[in-house]
Design a protein around this nucleic acid. Structure first.
Lengths: 204, 204
DNA sequence: TAAAAAATTATCAAATAGGAAAATTCTTTC
DNA sequence: GAAAGAATTTTCCTATTTGATAATTTTTTA
């Protein structure tokens, strides 16, 4: 049975600022106006009564999932676009720099991790540098698997990437791999020295 | 006025596959099981009756926005995570490898890009290698700004990172920076040779 | 500015969601 | 494998949402 990756535990999930119940109406009206649609037009496109649309826009009722889906479709937006307007205007500008060797170090069986930019919480991607200690498939143990995606770039040494659904692949310095983390995966060092990779992971 | 980054144009927006009405139940149950919660436990956390949770899980009713919000909160996930599971949690296992120098090359004024893992669409992160051509702030021109977040790791040379809200920062080989892309930003080479960075960007 | 048209909101009946508790199904324990 | 316990589903009833239509407000036109 695959085990969850230890990184996943170290990574605090991104705090999401979605709409709260009282903002949905404003948001719906905003999108509709943007598209220069009237309630009537939106009603025709979605089959939802104008009276209902009015009540939603005025936060007088909490529409069902069905209704939300039809509204989003009628506005030609993804549901997430309706419910979680991308920020950017939210304007929380941030910057974080980690100098070579100054990350937070963390030891696991097959990898030594140096986790980078840990001062910055709420980031969506999680960069780290991993030194691959395992040198054989058996030494690695069970493959990791967890929700999300990850990619890595080989900085030093030679890597053998093992996954659940593909044959082992060799990667040399300068090579890059991208994979779906739900698929069992794990990296070994196969060169003379332990390999070093720059790794970026995104959860769920 | 800041200009949008040319990378943004090259990156195909992540194709969003939202849930349709009949998938919500399965999705809710999946998340709940993942967290090893019972309907009873989730009920206690959210104040929603187990009977209601059961009906939602079996697609016997279409929960209101209120209820959706409370369910997401009780599961400790963003609403979007409940409603729009990323591919990958859907178990579409994928792998993509790009060998050194084999990415898609793309020239812009301040950067030469080599975009990696382009065969894989629908990925959330976008890795590339950038050679920094600009050597002064004026040569760079307007700072880039676009929705999303990005990080980079210095592979060669010396980098000066300019941003809208922070003073310029020098980065040497092995250093890593993480930033909010909505803030104006741009990198210069300040060493003897053009600097080379491994860059990862995530849009919206 | 008055009248007409369009858009939005209020009203009320019908349909659907949501909760309490009983009934069932699934797990554990002996 | 039966009994006990836990988890889930069903039942039944109340609260809320939804749609049709009427009333109101806003916009357009003459």
């Amino acid at each position: 049975m695959p085990r969850p990756a230890p990184v996943a535990d170290l990574i605090e999930p991104r705090s999401y600022r979605g709409l709260d119940a009282s903002e949905l109406g404003r948001r719906l009206r905003e999108l509709r106006k943007q598209r220069k649609q009237t309630q009537g037009a939106l009603s025709r496109r979605t089959g939802i009564a104008t009276s209902t649309i009015s009540k939603v826009e005025n936060n007088q009722l909490s529409p069902s999932f069905e209704t939300l889906l039809r509204l989003a479709e009628g506005l030609d937006v993804a549901l997430t676009e309706l419910l979680a307007p991308r920020d950017g205007s939210g304007g929380l500008t941030r910057l974080c720099v980690t100098r070579e060797g100054q990350g937070r170090h963390h030891e696991t069986q097959p990898y030594h991790y140096e986790i980078l930019c840990t001062e910055l919480v709420n980031k969506r991607m999680h960069p780290l540098i991993a030194r691959l200690k395992a040198r054989s498939r058996t030494e690695f143990g069970e493959l990791f698997h967890h929700p999300g995606e990850e990619l890595f770039y080989v900085l030093e040494g030679e890597v053998e990437l093992h996954t659940e659904h593909y044959g082992p692949t060799r990667l040399a310095k300068g090579d890059c791999a991208y994979l779906d983390s739900t698929m069992g995966h794990g990296c070994l060092s196969v060169g003379a020295e332990d390999a070093l990779v720059f790794w970026v992971s995104i959860v769920s």
